[in-house]
């Protein structure tokens, strides 16, 4: 039995790696067909033909694509992502700093948002169609319906400008004391929490309601267990798979999809880093960041699959 589980998990991981490899080909091909070229974008309005030719030669843009792909992949496997074309800085080290910031924000947001969403979901089920359910659904749905920049500006206006409790500029830097760092991310984390809360809460609620109709829940009720206890002990474990899937999708969003929040709160994360380099056609950086984003998505979905397999014995015997 255990061996079977291990085999399934190993398969998932292998599949993930294969997928990542395919994505790397896609990313490379995709960046090749972007309009314009790096030299033109770096020099911008001031490009003269002479300068363009010099720059193209210097950056090796004349080599064939396949050669460049394997050079690139080989480098990445050795942890060498190359240097940014636009400012000659080492990509791996600048990227790592930005990735740390992104993960820091994502981690603390998730730490608040995920338990909160699940607890709210459980409460909503317990008081289904009564006022707590309505209040929870109403507020979270309102928050998700508003565009994220709007939620961000509203929080900024009240908590940074009017009350002055938190800074409106969330720039973090190396060597910043932990307490300052937490103050800095308070508003972006709160905004992100409001945005991802409803999604996870609604899924928790729906998944649990689904199993609440089951015979074993009725049995549990008949043997006299209390409402929340039935939900927590019997219904929730059986609905964990869809919840984990949604949680993982939202975590992936926290890593790869928060560029708007980064811009309005001036948070130095991966999103802004990527966009600046896309605008300059800085292909090596775009490729590296693209690959990292893909790895995050694939990795988190893999985790979701594995958790589902462990939580649901039926999935261990695929037909």
């Amino acid at each position: 039995m255990n061996l079977l589980v291990l085999k399934l998990i190993a398969q998932r991981i292998a599949l993930g790696i294969l997928l990542l490899f395919l994505v790397s080909i896609l990313i490379f091909a995709g960046t090749q067909i972007l309009p314009g070229d790096v030299a033109q974008s770096i020099l911008g309005q001031g490009a003269t033909d002479q300068a363009l030719a010099n720059l193209r030669r210097e950056m090796g843009l004349d080599d064939p694509a396949v050669t460049r792909y394997f050079n690139w992949l080989g480098g990445i496997l050795q942890g060498d992502m190359g240097t940014a074309l636009s400012n000659n800085r080492d990509i791996a080290s600048s990227l790592w700093g930005r990735a740390q910031n992104t993960l820091f924000l994502a981690f603390w947001t998730a730490l608040v948002a995920v338990p909160l969403a699940i607890i709210l979901g459980l409460v909503a089920v317990r008081y289904q169609n009564r006022w707590p359910d309505r209040a929870i659904s109403g507020t979270t749905l309102t928050a998700i319906s508003l565009p994220e920049f709007f939620v961000g500006y509203v929080l900024m206006y009240f908590f940074a400008v009017k009350l002055g409790w938190f800074p409106s500029v969330s720039t973090v830097y190396d060597g910043m004391p932990f307490a300052d760092r937490m103050m800095a991310i308070a508003l972006p984390a709160a905004t992100l929490t409001l945005i991802i809360l409803a999604h996870m809460m609604r899924m928790t609620r729906a998944a649990i309601l689904n199993v609440m109709q089951s015979a074993y829940v009725e049995t549990a009720e008949l043997k006299g267990l209390g409402g929340l206890k039935i939900i927590w002990r019997h219904a929730f474990p059986n609905s964990v798979a869809p919840v984990v899937n949604v949680v993982m999708l939202n975590l992936a969003f926290l890593v790869v999809g928060v560029v708007v929040i980064e811009v309005i709160f001036v948070y130095p994360g991966l999103g802004q880093y990527l966009i600046d380099h896309v605008a300059k056609r800085d292909v090596p950086v775009v490729q590296a960041v693209g690959l990292i984003f893909a790895a995050v998505y694939i990795g988190l979905n893999m985790v979701a699959d594995i958790v589902s397999i462990l939580a649901n014995p039926r999935l261990r015997h695929p037909k």
């Binding site: 400008v161 002055g164 309005i264 001036v266």
Partner: peptide
Amino acid sequence: TVINDSTARTSALQSRQ
């Protein structure tokens, strides 16, 4: 501090950051 967003720049000025 690079603040490319206009609203964020004004808020930072307003909150004396």
